[in-house]
Design a protein around this nucleic acid. Structure first.
Lengths: 217, 217
DNA sequence: GTCTATAAGTGGATAGAC
DNA sequence: GTCTATCCACTTATAGAC
């Protein structure tokens, strides 16, 4: 990586605008200490400018957080979507492969070291930021549950899966993702381990195998 | 409840010491806004004394939080312990009853409206307080996983349960509790709904039924 | 677009009278 | 054990020179 601490989340490090540098620094600091504990001075010092200069790019401290939230909730929302093209190919690929592809698509976005710091920021601010809370409820909870409910409904129709309540199956399957997320971003997070480790991937693999064995018709 | 907003967490409301009033007020305010956002002045105003008087009872703001953490982590740690007496009665009570009793013991502590505010405080401060983080890893994660691993090991020995890896079974069973906790205290928490609602209990019930059907030998 | 200087407010904490 | 008064470090944010 480069000479400074801040791993950039934007494309070309050499051509970063000051606004992008500010956002990078803010993300880095907030991920470590939380939004309240980070001051405009801290951010300015990390970027290498005076605090008053920050206000040429953002009109308030809150606007910095809002920009981070708006920029990345859109980006991260794609994580819960299933990969395009797999939709109609249920019989072709089989249950195992189907669930594996769906899970991996989800996990890869969360594992990505480029965005794991953002996940940490959103996790930290979740408790008192309505925008983040709504994002989580919608994107991390309801959307995946709805998607998996539909998928399990179809699997039941095709007699690939026992006729359980599809919503219950969606919860049984997806709740494990929330568990892994919580353990990773609340209990095990530190600045050095920014991505899911192999143990978590093994646990997910075990979960998929156990679940499939439990529901296969 | 009484004439003021603060539901006391201590025994006799009429005989609360000032220290206890301060802790109650602090818990109430922190559960709503987080520790950083609550000032000594806020706490003093809620109690009805001047901020300087706070320092006759606690030597710093941090000591207030520490007292809350120390007092309740001990209390809450009991939540993850299985009820005494059930230990050796596995054959007698059967798998369903055994798991139901274990789960209920855990859930009742979390549901208790008296302590759910404390759970919220601990959840909010989890990300930057090592003491709380250690408590969670030990009491909310490792201890329950160890306990259930042992139990499932015994169930497998007695051929009550298929011979899966007991640690994997512990994760499959207990991760749903983490999911329910996360949804409750991070996504759905607000001052009015302080306890788990019936939907969560129904979801837990579904989970237990699904799990038993999946593992029964 | 960055700087210096400063405003205006809030925070935790202490001294000393009662 | 509570009060008034005060300290001072730190915060966000603005004004205006360069």
């Amino acid at each position: 990586m480069a000479k400074n601490d801040v791993e950039t989340l934007f494309q070309n490090e050499s051509e970063l605008t000051t606004s992008e540098k500010i956002l990078d620094a803010a993300i880095d600091l907030i991920a470590q200490e939380g939004f309240d504990a980070v001051s405009i001075r801290d951010i300015a010092k990390t970027v290498g400018i005076r605090e008053s200069s920050i206000y040429n790019h953002f009109k308030s401290k809150d606007e910095i957080l809002d920009t981070i939230i708006d920029y990345f909730t859109v980006e991260l929302a794609r994580a819960s979507a299933l990969p395009a093209g797999i939709e109609g190919r249920l019989e072709e690929v089989g249950i195992e492969k189907y669930m594996e592809i769906g899970s991996n698509a989800f996990m890869e976005r969360i594992m990505d070291p480029r965005v794991s710091k953002i996940w940490r920021v959103l996790s930290i601010e979740l408790y008192h930021n309505k925008k983040i809370k709504d994002f989580f409820i919608q994107t991390m909870l309801n959307a995946p549950l709805d998607a998996w409910e539909q998928i399990f409904g179809k699997m039941i129709d095709k007699k690939l899966v026992k006729s359980y309540d599809p919503r219950m199956l969606a919860r049984e399957f997806f709740s494990f993702g929330i568990y892994l997320y919580f353990v990773q971003f609340f209990l095990k997070y530190d600045e050095n381990s920014r991505s899911f480790d192999d143990a978590a991937l093994k646990e997910l693999d075990d979960h998929i195998k156990f679940f499939i064995e439990a529901v296969r018709a």
